[in-house]
Amino acid sequence: MRRRHFTQRTFVIGFGLVLIVAAMALLAPWVAPHDPAAQSTKARLLPPVLLGGTLEHPLGTDPLGRDLLSRIIYGSRISILLGLASVLGAGTIGLILGAVAGYVGGKVDAVIMRLVDLQMAIPFLVLALAVLAALGPGLTNLVLVLVITGWVVYARVMRAQVMAVKGREYVAAARALGVPHWRILLKHVLPAAIPPLTVISTVQVGTMILTEASLSFLGLGVPPSIPTWGSIAADGRAYMTTAWWVTTLPGLAIFLTVMGVNFLGDWLRDLLDPTLRQ
């Protein structure tokens, strides 16, 4: 009973945080007090209102005098979009490759799984660094990098699910009836894999947002002109000790968002996979 209570609490926290961020991203033009790109030499590095700043810039300003609150609000759009787009891309590719590997088996499976092994030998962020080094920074390249580094998780889960279901009687029956392979995969195999994939995708959105932020903070992700939480934080790198809010406040936004997403993922896991409930 207590566990149930805990589960409900994870949902409320997770859903609440995600809802706030989603609303912020959708309503950015209406809730942001300023143009996120408007510079002002007179208003450089103003502190947040609680530290003696003004209500004009509630969270202070960055080194170019841009309003930090507005930048964080607008930044949520690109950070979230990047997170969702890369999960969608990586998920689609991983799902297809995993399904093919598990269903076809044999040499195809061996090739795909060696590719997985290979990628498991290179840490996520290290691979992302190497790919970005080759491609150069940019929004599209960043999504590409996140997709390239992210598909493995889905492929492994999907393959395992397909192999588990493949031998069942209802699949054999469908085949005996002459149902084409793609239809079997879609109608009989995929549904069983949806619960674990939903949980993974949710948590992966958080991971992708974190990765994007890390890469952009290092100056390797999006160009500085595009405000994402990582690139806004990067603007404050040189002023870490004097104007700490420029780096820490976007970081706080990332932290709360990812925590919301992770709580949602936990709740989904409890909901969709009762065997894991303890």
Binding site: G206, L210, A213, S214, F217, G230, A233, M240, W244, T247, T248, G251, L252, I254, F255, V258, M259, N262
Partner: peptide, 11 residues
Amino acid sequence: QSMPTFWLGVI
């Protein structure tokens, strides 16, 4: 698990 590494470092 939810904190960005750079953020924790800066804090």
